[in-house]
Design a protein around this nucleic acid. Structure first.
Length: 205
DNA sequence: CACCAGGAATGTA
DNA sequence: TACATTCATGGT
């Protein structure tokens, strides 16, 4: 039994199934609308408290704009309106540009999420990383939670988790991602649950 | 009042 | 490759 699997079992005994306990992201299965909300949230949550992200997402809901197609149109018509919706989540000038970079790419290249999901994960990852505003964590969060691809997400919680549980002190994204991938079956549900449990555990302490 | 939250881009060495 | 700075709101 390797350390990665061992720690997963510990977390499972401690918290049970994470699905439903961790906002939308831990929930399975997800509706089409929820997948789009996760993609939007992936940008808004960059270096930001989830509470503030919720405020912004509420603004989108109230304006009937919580969808990629609506944001695409609003970006063309009234970018300042979009900024106002994003404002409570902070860094709103940047996030407006970043969100539009992402949404424009998806709509113009794939039209729908459904089309995009058919493309292999490694290709999509390369494409996402070319977009200004999308780094490794955001790209992988989208791939894992919205597109349901078996791609392990690394974040600060994961790094702290590895350090505290004597797995490794290395902080490199690619090293840690390979470490988890090599020691777990390639299963997106497992990846979602594990990462969600790491975050739940991190918030808990 | 100070600190920080599920990052990423940019600049420096 | 590694580290510092910038972006901004709302909670504690």
């Amino acid at each position: 039994m390797n350390k990665i699997k061992f720690q997963y079992n510990i977390l499972r005994k401690k918290y049970g199934k994470p699905a439903g306990q961790w906002m939308l992201w831990g929930k399975r299965p997800k509706t089409f609308e929820e997948k789009e909300e996760i993609i939007i949230g992936a940008i808004l949550t960059q270096q930001t408290n989830w509470n503030n992200v919720m405020r912004a997402l509420e603004n989108f809901k109230n304006e009937k704009c919580l969808s990629l197609a609506r944001i695409y149109k609003l970006g063309k018509r009234d970018k300042n309106k979009l900024k106002e919706l994003i404002k409570p989540s902070g860094f709103y000038n940047q996030k407006t540009e970043y969100l539009l970079n992402l949404v424009n790419f998806i709509i113009e290249k794939y039209k729908t999420l459904d089309n995009m999901e058919k493309v292999p994960a490694d290709i999509l990852r390369e494409e996402l990383l070319k977009i200004k505003g999308i780094g490794e964590e955001t790209a992988d969060s989208i791939l894992l939670y919205a597109m349901e691809k078996p791609v392990f997400v690394i974040d600060e919680y994961t790094r702290r988790f590895c350090k505290e549980n004597k797995i490794t002190d290395v902080r490199s994204y690619s090293y840690l991602q390979k470490l988890f991938s090599d020691n777990l079956p390639k299963n997106y549900k497992l990846y979602q649950d594990y990462h969600a449990l790491i975050v739940i555990d991190g918030k808990n302490s």
